[in-house]
Design a protein around this nucleic acid. Structure first.
Length: 271
DNA sequence: TTCTTAACCTGGAGGC
DNA sequence: TGCCTCCAGGTTAAGA
């Protein structure tokens, strides 16, 4: 499941080879991948040169010259690949680039999306989604976190998954951050002490940094642009380990549904 | 304003 | 072997 670290790894991979290439064509095999009229998307992309790649939360932003940006969200199972595996299903869309290169978007569950934005539309696009600050930006601080948690009665797990509070955290890294912070996922945000808030701030950044360092978490679908898997799944201490022994206390990790998401936590270490 | 729930979507696992 | 049901989860819209 691509969260911030996985998208960042894809961005870095693409940033090494896409800039300078010219988008000569767009093949859309699955019309649901674009929410805008297909002709509009094509008109805004084709003929442009890739000038850079950025990331905003889980959104991948492709800067185009002389104007405009392409925005891609991988959602659950989206992959941007230069060479799809032989025999795989038709790509949802393909960018035909010059010199001869193809960038394929594959997406089993078909949740991923592509947007083509004209110059000046990017701010409004992200403002409409109400994305919170980037975890590695100055805007994300202990003070910010404390302010956002004030009065919040929703479970902390739900709080972390809400992209309006913080951009980029998904189910895997939310479980990991809460485990390392020693905070139970079902705790109400309003109940956090200043010390716990500071600890959560640190662990959120730590698990995301570790995820990037390990080139993302791969369970089944996630691959970077070269088709390579990440290795962060071997570093996970909580996510997906229910029924196994806690690395800290040796007790059994439990599973529950919190905020509609499967959540793993240690009843002894997380309070 | 905040929170909860359903829906979208499909492959894989497990049960019968 | 085949069928059925459940589960996985990022985002959005609707309702409480």
């Amino acid at each position: 499941m691509p969260e911030l670290p996985e998208v960042e790894v894809v961005r870095r991979r693409l940033a090494a080879c896409l800039p300078g290439l010219v988008l000569r064509g767009l093949v859309v095999n699955d019309p649901t991948v674009v929410e805008q009229p297909e002709d509009e998307v094509r008109a805004r992309l084709v003929g442009r040169r890739v000038s850079g790649l950025r990331r905003r939360g889980k959104y991948l932003i492709v800067d185009l010259a002389p104007d405009g940006v392409a925005v891609v969200h991988l959602r659950m199972t989206g992959q941007l690949l230069f060479r799809p595996e032989p025999g795989s299903r038709p790509s949802r869309f393909v960018w035909l680039l010059e010199p001869a290169t193809e960038l394929h978007f594959q997406d089993v569950r078909r949740f991923g999306r592509l947007w083509a934005l004209a110059a000046g539309e990017e701010d409004a696009f992200f403002a409409a989604r109400g994305l919170g600050p980037e975890p590695f930006s100055d805007a994300f601080s202990v003070a910010y976190l404390a302010q956002r948690l004030r009065g919040r009665r929703a479970p902390l797990k739900s709080f972390l998954l809400d992209q309006r509070n913080l951009a980029g955290v998904g189910n895997i890294y939310a479980d990991e951050a809460l485990f390392l912070a020693g905070i139970r996922p079902s705790r109400r945000g309003v109940t956090l002490t200043r010390k716990e808030t500071a600890r959560l701030f640190d662990t959120v950044k730590h698990v995301l940094e570790l995820g990037i360092k390990n080139r993302g978490t791969t369970f089944s679908n996630y691959r970077d642009a070269q088709g390579e898997s990440g290795s962060n799944q071997t570093s996970l201490q909580a996510y997906g380990r229910y029924g196994e022994a806690c690395y800290r206390c040796g007790g059994e990790l439990k599973r529950a549904t919190v905020g509609q998401r499967t959540t793993t936590w240690c009843p002894n270490c997380q309070r």
